[in-house]
């Protein structure tokens, strides 16, 4: 039971990351919710075997990106169109339409990239160093630098 509580705590602490990844790899709210659920499920499944050899955030990015790419392959929904109604969900108190519009433009730019580049861009925007991006994606740091 303690492990479950720990999992919930970690998920809640990093839910913003999952949200950003799932928004990046989907084109509408329903797909985003499906992918979000799938990512949480896959994280839960692999949490049992998580040995803390890597940072929790590294593990989380890796699982989330792999899940997103696998789901995309399965569903073959590889379109680049942007049809997100609201990029930032559940903004109740500080909802800013202008900010929302700028985010849509940002996501539209990112969605023009291929699936691997999207992941690299996300990690770069998250402020990850090349070494950590390499660890998450399985590429070499040099390769990461070249692609970026």
């Amino acid at each position: 039971m303690q492990k479950e509580q720990e999992f919930v705590r970690i998920i809640k602490q990093h839910e913003g990351v999952i949200f950003k990844i799932t928004t990046m790899y989907t084109n509408n709210g329903d797909d985003q919710k499906d992918l979000y659920q799938e990512v949480v499920y896959q994280l839960w499944k692999s949490f049992e075997t998580f040995r803390a050899e890597s940072k929790i955030s590294t593990w989380m990015y890796r699982i989330a990106l792999n899940t997103a790419l696998t789901k995309l392959k399965k569903s073959k929904r590889m379109g680049n169109s942007v049809s997100i109604n609201r990029v930032v969900l559940e903004q109740t108190e500080n909802y800013d339409p202008e900010f929302e519009e700028r985010l849509k433009v940002l996501y539209a730019h990112i969605k023009q990239l291929n699936q691997i580049e999207k992941g690299l861009m996300l990690l770069l925007l998250e402020g990850k160093k090349y070494e950590e991006i390499a660890e998450i994606t399985g590429l070499t740091p040099t390769n990461v630098g070249t692609k970026i």
């Binding site: 919930v8 998920i11 809640k12 839910e15 913003g16 999952i18 949200f19 950003k20 979000y36 949480v40 930032v88 969900l89 559940e90 903004q91 109740t92 500080n94």
Partner: peptide, 8 residues
């Protein structure tokens, strides 16, 4: 997003 911990 850090201020809206309701997603999960």
């Amino acid at each position: 997003l850090d201020h809206q911990k309701k997603l999960t």
